[in-house]
Amino acid sequence: MISRWDEFRQGVRDGLPLQLGILPFGAVFGVLGVESGLTPAQTFFMSSLLFAGTSQIIFAQLVAIATPIAILLGSVAALNARHLLYSASISEYIRDKPLKWRILLAYLLTDEAYAVSILRYQKRPHNPMMHYHLLGSGLLLWSVWQIATLVGVLAGNAIPEEMALGFVIPLIFMAITLPLIKSRVEVATIATSTACVFAFAHLPYNLWLLIAAIAGIAAGTITAVYFKQTGDA
């Protein structure tokens, strides 16, 4: 019988290596948030109110170029729609827990926490204390994210523009997306998205962002259906 604290500690341990990526990512967001015209308080509290790194950076960038509200909210929603998949995936394991647990774990359900805890759940599907694992991995990430954001907000003005820190974002996203490309489904997705960025770059309001993302998802899904590769792959 595994105790709840064993399970919590296991979640923290499993999440630890990922924090190497979270720290600089959070600090970059803190820097970019203030640079893009958000106040230090808005930048810092976005990390707990929104708590979804990539969409926080997009939020800041879209605010900086005065994007209309609908496009901004649409971009955040499109970017975070992947959480629907995480939610659907872990519901099998925690949908019977009390409501307060489901609310708390939903709030903590980030890419990284999901990634480590779903592995644990698949290995031990009948562990009654399993919700403490996601609590551990989620709270660790939450804490590191708040600290990293604060560091970025405080250090922001000390970093010269020649450092080109904004380039860290495409670097991080390349490191995340490139290893996910495993078949013609993903190739169809990124090829279509790439073409759409060039084709629609001139459109106002950063419309290319949503068009390229949706077209890429559609192309990949159609490819998967056509070649019968649908599902989790």
């Binding site: 992947r82 060039f198 770059a201 390229a212 899904t221």
Partner: peptide, 28 residues
């Protein structure tokens, strides 16, 4: 509790499509 297989695939492709779009835009 379950999405259709095509919907599951579409969801799985969301981060790839969105993040890659941002990469291309940031570079070019």
């Amino acid at each position: 509790a379950k999405l259709s297989p095509a919907a599951t695939t579409a969801m799985r492709l969301v981060p790839i499509a969105v993040l890659w779009t941002i990469v291309v835009a940031e570079i070019f």
